[in-house]
Design a protein around this nucleic acid. Structure first.
Lengths: 231, 231
DNA sequence: CCGCATATTATGGGATACCATAATATCACT
DNA sequence: AGTGATATTATGGTATCCCATAATATGCGG
């Protein structure tokens, strides 16, 4: 059969308007094109996105369930503010979830995955060296995605992805921290080493340490901000 | 002051129609008033819920983001089916999240929380004895809610709550299993004991074991079903 | 000029009616 | 029987309504 290799399916990427609007809005919020706490007036968003109010409302509801938008009684949606305490909780959750993904990878011990992770880590180091912080962030996301998807942890990846969006501003701050360009990659290397060794417990630990470390940096930065404000 | 104790606030539970519809729909799906995979025709739901299509659409979108509804290209929403593999992942996630909540409780070691947990566990035992399975489920949910909320893990509780909805049918099956009426409460007692002793690691382990056990039972039941179908 | 009551406006919550299109079902013809 | 044309159903999406309420502006009496 000529079609046995390539299943010849006619795929259609045709996303709905709603999905496009959702991505645009999520992107806008995550990249802070709105101030935290800013009101999101439905009719204004209709103009800005060029879609009807129906769509805007569906999108806002969706983002609410992701925690990026908060809807207050009779006042409508605003950009959700993530408190330091919530950020702490989010880092804690990421710590254990990334831990189990890393552990699962270690147990599988797939050389292809190890190679992929090493390629991505090289990209991260290069991005740090070139001081391209956006590239650091996206490559780091790739690193974790690889961990999750290759161990079949799709549900967990969905959760991590969703909650990480709420602390994106902290992520971009932590990677700018002095020495993080060495510490971060070093910790990720440990994850890879543990996977290569097939050591599940060590992989869990290494992934957990990496997140816990980022959490500590973020907490320090927030405390500093708080201090500066009180001054 | 006569009003000092009871702050005399005129609270308004005034939920929006949308929220009411959302709860009704979620309830209907979780309690399997729809078959898995069944199409959810918007206009029909309008009639059944007595609300406009606007609301129904927002609700369906919301439930999609919770994973209870799946929306397929140009065919509209259907009741999402949770595969055995997804169920496995969900149990794994619950295992670690309930673990960290239990651990946090153990570190706090609050006698009031311990007392509360023991009250709830007594209710669970009573419900098992009376063979009131719905009461077992709701009390078990209370047990875990107590663990999460009293350790301030609100974000994690939200996640657990949401993913647990997707395996509700398995939950009601596992608690019917022979011996689960003894094993389950015994494992929960271990969690309480560890908290009482302030032993974080033991509390994590006990909570994790409880969930892992439920997962194993569910997996066995699913395998059995599969076998029966193939017969 | 201040305090209060009263418009006014902005906006959300919700409902309808409508259109275009895709998927499906029906049917008629050869 | 199988092909093609047609009708039906339902989604994706839009445009407007209406009403209730929160915030703001306005105005008036002292």
């Amino acid at each position: 059969m000529s079609a046995s290799e390539q299943p010849m399916r006619v795929l259609r990427p045709e996303k709905t308007l709603r999905e496009l609007a959702l991505e645009k809005m999520r992107d806008a919020i995550v990249n802070m094109h709105f101030r935290a706490g800013e009101r999101l007036v439905e009719r204004d968003l209709c103009d800005q996105l060029g879609v009807s109010r129906t769509i805007v409302r569906e999108v806002l509801r969706h983002l609410e369930s992701e925690g990026l938008v908060a809807i207050q009684q009779n006042r409508g949606p605003i950009v959700a503010e993530t408190t330091p305490e919530e950020a702490r909780q989010i880092y804690e959750i990421r710590g254990v979830l990334e831990g189990i993904a890393a552990k699962a990878c270690a147990i599988q011990k797939d050389p292809a995955v190890v190679a992929e992770l090493e390629r991505i880590l090289a990209r991260i180091r290069a991005a740090y060296a070139a001081n391209e912080l956006a590239a650091v962030l996206s490559a780091t996301t790739d690193f974790y995605r690889t961990l999750f998807e290759n161990s079949g942890r799709h549900v967990a990846w969905g959760i991590v992805n969703s909650i990480t969006a709420r602390i994106n501003h902290l992520r971009s701050m932590t990677i700018k921290t002095p020495d993080r360009d060495k510490q971060g990659p070093a910790q990720m290397q440990k994850i890879i080493d543990a996977i290569k060794a097939g050591d599940g417990a060590a992989a869990y630990e290494a992934a957990n340490v990496h997140v816990t470390n980022a959490a500590a940096i973020a907490e320090a930065l927030l405390a500093e901000q708080q201090g500066a404000k009180a001054r």
